[in-house]
Simulated assay, not measured.
Amino acid sequence: MFDHVKFGVSDYAASKRFFLQALAPLGVSLGGEGEPSYGVELCGSGDASLCLFETQERPAPLHLAFKAETRAQVDAFYAAALAAGGRDHGPPGLRPQYHAHYYAAFVIGPDGHNIEAVCHAPEGV
């Protein structure tokens, strides 16, 4: 659906470091970068990208959910995000209130955004 999503962050260096480290287990890496006011593009295996830029405006918290192919990737995302300075907002596990195979983990990033990794596949797939 999206080509890219771009949003402002208050501490560009900290957010860039956090997102690169937290999303590395999901195959996300640096795609391109300009001045902090222009930002950085983070790319995965698909065509869509996530772009961050530095701003003094305080945006409302977002909920960003990233697709994981396996439950192990969700677990690795959670560990990497915490190591990168994220705060726990829900450890890896099933969320049957969404559907039977919804396996996700949640962290709060540097600007208070709720960052999620989710795998929709049954266990062992």
Rank of each mutant, 00 (worst) to 15 (best):
Phe18Lys: 00
Arg87Cys: 00
Asp47Val: 08
Pro91Trp: 05
Pro96Ile: 00
Ser29Lys: 15
Ser37Arg: 15
Ala76Ser: 15
Asp3Tyr: 13
Ala121Gln: 15
Phe18Ile: 02
Arg17His: 11
Tyr98Lys: 15
Pro92Gln: 05
Gln56Ser: 15
Phe66Trp: 09
Glu33His: 05
His4Phe: 13
Tyr12Asn: 03
Cys43Ala: 13
Arg95Phe: 08
His89Glu: 10
Gly46Glu: 14
Val107Asn: 00
Thr70Trp: 03
His99Phe: 14
Thr55Ala: 01
Phe7Cys: 04
Lys16Ser: 03
Asp111Thr: 01
Gly27Ala: 07
His99Ile: 08
Glu33Phe: 06
Pro61Val: 02
Ala104Trp: 02
His113Trp: 01
Cys43Thr: 13
Tyr102Val: 10
Asp47Ala: 09
Ser15Pro: 01
Ser10Met: 08
Asp3Glu: 13
Leu82Met: 12
Tyr12Arg: 04
Arg71His: 13
Glu54Met: 06
Glu54Arg: 14
Ser37Leu: 11
Pro91Ala: 12
Phe19Arg: 05
Lys16Ala: 08
Lys6Ile: 07
Phe53Met: 14
Asp3Gly: 12
Asn114Arg: 06
Gln21Leu: 08
Phe2Asp: 09
Lys16Cys: 02
His113Cys: 00
Tyr78Val: 11
Phe53Arg: 12
His120Thr: 10
Gly86Asn: 01
Tyr12Ser: 05
Leu62Gly: 02
Ala100Leu: 11
Leu42Gln: 03
Gly34Cys: 01
Gly109Met: 01
Glu35Ser: 13
Asp3Ile: 09
Lys6Val: 09
Tyr103Gln: 06
Glu54Gly: 13
Ala65Glu: 15
Ala84Trp: 05
Arg95Ile: 06
Leu94Pro: 04
Gly46Tyr: 08
Gln56Cys: 09
Val107Asp: 01
Arg17Pro: 05
Gly86His: 03
Gly31Lys: 14
Glu69Thr: 15
Ser15Arg: 02
Gly112Asn: 05
Glu54Cys: 06
Glu57Trp: 03
Pro92His: 05
Leu42Arg: 05
Ser15His: 03
Glu41Asp: 09
Pro91His: 02
Gly39Phe: 06
Arg95Glu: 05
Phe18Glu: 03
Glu69Phe: 08
Gly8Phe: 02
Phe18Leu: 04
Pro122Ser: 06
Pro122Gln: 10
Arg58Asn: 08
Leu82Thr: 03
Leu23Met: 09
Arg58Gln: 13
Val5Arg: 04
Gly8Asp: 03
Ala84Pro: 04
Gly86Gln: 00
Tyr12Leu: 02
Asp47Arg: 14
His120Met: 09
Val107Ala: 04
Gln73Asn: 07
Pro59Ala: 12
Leu30Ile: 07
Leu52Tyr: 08
Leu50Tyr: 10
Leu23Thr: 12
Pro61His: 00
Asp75Lys: 11
Glu35Leu: 15
Leu82Lys: 09
Gly46Gln: 14
Leu82Ile: 12
Gln73Ala: 15
Pro25Phe: 07
Arg71Val: 12
Gly109Cys: 03
His120Asp: 15
Gly124Asn: 10
Pro110Leu: 04
Asn114Tyr: 01
Tyr38Asp: 10
